[in-house]
Design a protein around this nucleic acid. Structure first.
Length: 1168
RNA sequence: GCCCGAGUGGCGGAACUGGUAUACGCGCACGACUUAAAAUCGUGUCUCGUAAGGGAUGUGGGUUCGAUUCCCACCUCGGGCACCA
């Protein structure tokens, strides 16, 4: 019986026919549903494991050999987990919306649905031929209406919570693809996809408020296990910076008095007028609040008469016209009265006017039809603070009023309704404006010598009218607008800007008046669009200040604290402060510098000394040079007001010193020199040191700063240090001073982010339609959830329109719908979602891919993600480096949002994230169809087999690094598998080879009990290999795992005998890499159940211990010989043995042994 | 410019926490088998040197008994960010 069986095998064996084997097992596995994950916890007691790869975009080019690398990697892990007893979910699907398919449709007119189907069929066939253990029963496709129904549904939840909104945006527009691009899709000012230069366009866009989650997206990275560089990428992109918002009050010397004119019904009813009056008076202004006649049924003409007669009106007056009072102001100006300015507070008070109709004051003004051209000439500025959005369309005869109103606003551009009308400080801030800046360096505010506004900052517009250099500013604004993104963001280019002349603000720290500039190096979209410029401590401000000759003030000075040696600061003593100078004296003849070298101890530095009471700094420096070196004629080159604070212990005076050394640069006029005192001579030597040698010469840290200063006269100190020129904050540590200074200037601590809200609409066809209906009456109305999905209609032409609308806009049948609210005429939104949408939640769908009631059943989510909010999610997610910022960030955002709605059980989607490197073409270039260097896995599978391809891809190099494909090297893994096959063949066919079975003897025992040496070594190696492979897989060190198995296979092949048990263990640890061949051999060895259902072997610690170890013998660190000793041999015995070795004796002959270093089980190093 | 990562044979790469540098694979050379070739197997393969020994992990320095590994400076390549106050 047994013989027959072996004979049968012998016939069957012969060569390794990968085609037969792989086909057979792939069918068998699918038939037995061996890789299908089981949902319900009750049915299986196994712990769950969710491993995930990024689902592919099924492009028309088909799979290339780079695609499967991550799939194989996670497959190895998933297969290992199954053997380790987990219920594994390893799913796949298609991320099939997107541009390439659409562009193909545009070119060929083919329906993207059909193209997608064809492409994904090809991808599926190719991936399946690799024997990856995906659960194909859970396959999903983002373009399937049953899938995108839920993408749309999630969007509606965003809409409901106010996190999806429409905004007019200047967007990046790719003129070739005719598509709006998100910031992250623009690379170097060009379209990420096609490389065309990006243009700017104004467009209404759907936005997702990802910035609301910025802080959590940043902070929660602490809880997840991502590779450090991935976390870093996320953090950089979010761009958190902590700082402060600080107000700089605007100075306007021409305003002396305010005239507050009541509104129609607003008797000093509330605290508003008294409050405003008090506030203004407290700032030193004259304020007049006349008691207006004709309350109740006001008449602006009558009131204007009254004001003209009783109040002071001149060029120093600003009229604050509240409601009806605003009309009175208009009347006055129309009569030819000149004032400095008018602020028209059009708060939401409506009432019955002279014409008997009810409307707000702005509406009333519009109806009156003033002579705006004349009015505008009477005042330097005319500011309308209005909330009267309701008055744009009148309740009664809307159209006419709207027209009039339009002309009113047209007359005063930049005054569109924007005012909330409620907050008193808001009113005040318009009367006495502040410019708000954001800074991360409030500690440097004493060095803020000017302010810079971004050209887009609204304050520039509103202020321009009264600027002395209005035309210059206008010109600059036009210029910057013309500049495209590339030139504007080019840091190399010289900074430009223009001063807002006549405008000064007060630095709230110094109370000095400082100028205000407009410059495009300040970005409107970040912070407040305004900065305080500190040229002394910011490179950009410094460049700008140099160019426009603005004052530079250094307020933070580096500090050096001596902590070692005899000059180390004594912790128990307080400091004695001194002003000191440091003279940098150059001899221009040979470009050397005057230095001193102390005789008593190793200290090399410059000429320094204390400043005496009342002494001038420069004189002090010259005096010190003269006293210490005798040089008489010095010429001051520069005194940059640069100093270093120095804390040390004065050895002579025996006290802690805190000295401030101010650096001054001198040139030697001539070399004339007096004798120096003997006393000085005793202390140090005078040396002239060449500039190149200074670096090595200085023993003190300040040397570094001096070199920076010498090499670069524009050196500015950017680091943390000690404050100076900062009044009461002098001598404080800059970091500590931040908070106190913010408080001192009345600022507010604030954290801001670089992250912008996500532009979520695309004017394209092949994406999920945004499920919103546009109704003239009701505005934006969400499609009711029961009407989802909003399916993409078929179109004839996929070309986007030139106006930038999606091709959907032309499908009138689809676009025109009834409003779900009022049943009136309405239009569908024609924008579609970006293809980040479907991939932001796909991993949730895998847990319950066929659910038609919810995006996934809660039970399934809880099972597969876990129920611990802080430590749950997909167990292991591997993907490409190119997706570690955007896709990861977006899906984390969606997940957190769903978590807040209690729709998912965890706070984070993925517990662990790793990346793989790309596989490049043989030349090291990226594989692409256009370059013609694509390697198709079909050919490799056909020639070498899927197992060989898998082993090769895992073996070729470190998993996380990019690597070039090599057609030559693939033969190595193939030979390895053939060797494995041969060993199996030998075991099956040669009873001699597999006869010796010491397995029962060694189980649980130590190697010492074993007598058969060959097997013994093999068993030792086997167990070491189990350990290594087990560990290496966890660290994704697949290449070294395979390398160790190659070694094992060589040893087994060479061995006189290998037991079935041992070989089967080898097959098990190899099976994640090469599942087909191992399954076949496993089966041939008589196993009835799949190797996939077996148990992952464990190594036996006792069996990997070496009996004998090699000790490396070094002499003076050089390898001389090696000896073998028993493991854990006593140190003395080893040393004794080493010293008897003839090689050793030869080397140490006649020399004295100074030291012997011993590292247990490793080496002996003899120092002679 | 800033921030990461990496530089090791002819090539892909290995080396634990500072302890034999070059594992494993490719290639190449030689040998065995063969009429022959392919395939396979075996042996060898950093470099100089007959040898003893010396020199090599991008370059230069440092710490150490001992450095691919730690520190400093520089060079090159790859990736990310790029006027983010």
């Amino acid at each position: 019986m047994a013989n027959n069986w072996i004979l049968g095998i012998m016939k069957y064996m012969k060569e390794y026919d990968h085609k037969k084997i792989e086909n057979k097992w792939q069918k068998e596995w699918e038939k037995k549903e061996i890789y299908h994950a089981k949902d319900q916890k009750g049915q299986n007691k196994k712990p769950k494991y969710y491993s995930l790869i990024e689902f592919p975009y099924p492009s028309g080019d088909g799979l290339h050999v780079g695609h499967p690398r991550p799939y194989i990697g996670m497959d190895v892990i998933s297969r290992k987990r199954r053997l380790q007893g987990y219920n594994v979910l390893y799913p796949i699907g298609w991320d099939a919306f997107g541009l390439p398919t659409e562009n193909f449709a545009i070119k060929t007119g083919k329906d993207p649905r059909i193209v997608t189907k064809k492409n994904s069929d090809t991808f599926r066939r190719q991936i399946q031929s690799l024997g990856i253990s995906f659960d194909w029963s859970r396959e999903i496709n983002t373009t399937d209406p049953r899938y995108y129904k839920w993408t749309q549904w999630i969007f509606l939840q965003f809409l409901k919570k106010g996190l999806a909104y429409k905004a007019k945006m200047t967007i990046n527009w790719c003129p070739k693809d005719k598509i709006g691009l998100a910031n992250e899709e623009v690379v170097d000012g060009c379209c990420e996809r096609c490389g065309t230069a990006v243009e700017k366009r104004e467009k209404e866009q759907w936005m997702l408020a990802i910035t609301k989650y910025a802080d959590r997206l940043h902070k929660d990275l602490d809880d997840v296990d991502y590779l450090p560089q991935i976390k870093l990428g996320q953090r950089n992109w979010i761009g958190k910076s902590e700082g402060a918002e600080i107000d700089f009050p605007v100075v306007n010397p021409r305003v002396k008095r305010f005239l507050i004119l009541h509104g129609r019904s607003s008797t000093p009813k509330d605290n508003f007028y008294p409050w405003l009056k008090m506030e203004l008076e407290s700032k030193g202004f004259k304020v007049e609040v006349p008691e207006m006649p004709g309350r109740g049924e006001p008449n602006d003409i009558e009131q204007a008469d009254f004001v003209e007669k009783n109040c002071t009106l001149n060029k120093e007056t600003v009229i604050v016209g509240h409601s009806m009072g605003g009309l009175v102001a208009l009347r006055l100006l129309e009569r030819g009265i000149k004032v400095h300015g008018v602020v028209f507070l059009a708060t939401p008070i409506t009432g019955r006017f002279l014409d008997g109709k009810v409307r707000s004051s702005v509406t009333a003004a519009a109806v009156r039809g003033f002579d705006y051209e004349k009015i505008k000439k009477q005042a330097d500025f005319f500011k309308i603070l209005s909330d009267s959005t309701d008055s744009v369309v009148s309740q009664e005869d809307g159209k006419i009023l709207a027209k009039n109103l339009g002309s009113f606003y047209q007359a005063f551009p930049g005054n569109e309704p924007h005012f909330s009308g409620k907050e008193e400080p808001e009113v005040l801030s318009y009367l006495l404006p502040n410019i708000k800046v954001f800074t991360t360096r409030p500690d440097t505010i004493f060095g803020a010598t000017y302010l810079v506004l971004a050209p887009e900052n609204p304050y520039v517009q509103s202020r321009m009218g009264i600027s002395e250099n209005k035309t210059e500013i206008e010109k600059y604004l036009i210029e910057t607008k013309k500049k495209d993104e590339i030139t504007r963001l080019n840091t190399e280019k010289e900074k430009t800007g223009v001063e807002l002349k006549g405008l000064k603000v007060i630095n709230p720290a110094t109370n000095e008046e400082i100028p205000v500039w407009v410059a495009d190096y300040v970005l409107a979209g970040y912070g407040t669009g305004a900065i305080m410029a500190v040229p002394g401590h910011d490179e950009r401000d410094f460049q700008f200040a140099k160019k426009y000759d603005l004052p530079i003030r250094r307020v933070v000075e580096p500090i050096q604290i001596v902590t070692e040696g005899e000059s180390a600061v004594k912790n128990d003593q307080s400091f004695v402060k001194r002003n000191a100078v440091c003279a940098v004296v150059r001899n221009p003849k040979d470009n050397t510098y005057l230095c001193s070298s102390w005789k008593a101890f190793k200290m090399n530095g410059l000429i320094t000394g204390g400043v005496e009471e009342g002494e001038d700094m420069i004189e002090a420096a010259k005096r010190e040079v003269y006293e210490e070196t005798g040089y008489k004629n010095l010429r001051l080159v520069t005194n940059p007001d640069f100093a270093i604070q120095n804390k040390f212990y004065h050895r002579v005076k025996k006290q802690n010193r805190w000295a401030r050394f101010q650096y001054m640069f001198f040139d030697l006029v001539d070399e004339s020199r007096d004798q120096i005192s003997e006393e000085e001579n005793q202390i140090h030597d005078i040396v002239w040191v060449k500039k190149e040698e200074l670096k090595n010469f200085f023993t003190v840290i300040e040397g570094q700063f001096i070199l920076d200063l010498i090499d670069n006269p524009n050196y500015i100190f950017l680091g943390r240090g000690i404050l100076h020129h900062s009044q009461k904050f002098d001598d404080m540590d800059s970091e500590q001073a931040k908070k106190e200074i913010i408080k001192f200037v009345g600022g507010k601590e604030k954290t801001i982010f670089k992250l912008r809200d996500w532009i979520f609409s695309r004017q394209r066809y092949w994406g999920e339609p945004i499920p919103v209906i546009n109704c003239q009456k009701c505005g934006l109305v969400p499609v009711s959830e029961k009407d989802l999905p909003v399916e993409l209609p078929k179109v004839k032409n996929y070309q986007p329109t030139d106006s930038g609308e999606s091709p959907l806009a032309n499908i009138t049948k689809w676009v025109n719908v009834k409003c779900p609210k009022c049943k009136g005429k309405a239009k569908r939104e024609t924008d579609t979602m970006p293809n980040w949408a479907g991939s932001s939640w796909y991993y949730l769908r895998y847990t319950d891919p066929k659910n038609s009631k919810a995006f996934a059943d809660n039970k399934n989510l809880k099972y597969w993600l876990g129920n611990d909010p802080r430590h749950g999610g997909v167990n292991w997610y591997n993907g490409g480096n190119e997706h570690t910022t955007l896709h990861l960030l977006y899906s984390r955002f969606w997940h957190k949002f769903l978590f807040d709605l209690k729709l998912v059980p965890t706070n984070e989607p993925y517990m662990k994230r790793t990346s793989h490197g790309l596989i490049l073409a043989e030349g090291g270039e990226k594989m692409s169809k256009s370059k013609g260097n694509v390697v198709n896995p079909d050919d490799i599978v056909k020639r070498y087999g899927a197992d060989t391809l898998r082993v090769y891809e895992m073996f070729m190099g470190p998993f996380d690094q990019a690597i070039a494909w090599s057609e030559e090297a693939i033969i190595g893994p193939r030979r390895f598998l053939e060797k494995v096959w041969r060993i199996g063949e030998k075991i099956l066919t040669s009873s001699n080879f597999s006869a010796l079975r010491p397995s029962l003897e060694y189980k649980g025992g130590t190697l010492g009990q074993l007598k058969i040496e060959r097997s013994l070594n093999l068993i030792n190696l086997l167990h070491k290999t189990i350990k290594k492979v087990t560990e290496d897989i966890e660290g994704m060190n697949f290449n070294t795992a395979i390398s160790s198995m190659m070694i094992l296979s060589t040893e087994m092949d060479k061995a006189e005998s290998v037991t079935r048990e041992d070989f089967k263990i080898f097959l098990q640890i190899l099976s994640p890499f090469a599942p087909h061949i191992t399954e076949e051999l496993w089966n041939m060895l008589g196993e009835k159940k799949s190797i996939n259902l077996s148990e992952w072997p464990k190594h036996d610690e006792n069996l990997i211990k070496d009996e004998e170890v090699k000790i490396v013998v070094q002499i003076n660190g050089k390898l001389r010989t090696e000896i073998f000793v028993k493991a854990n041999e006593n140190e003395e015995d080893v040393k004794r043995k080493v010293l008897k070795d003839e090689n050793v004796l030869r080397h140490i002959a006649g020399k004295e042994i100074k030291r012997v270093i011993y590292v247990k089980n490793r080496l002996v190093n003899i120092v002679i």
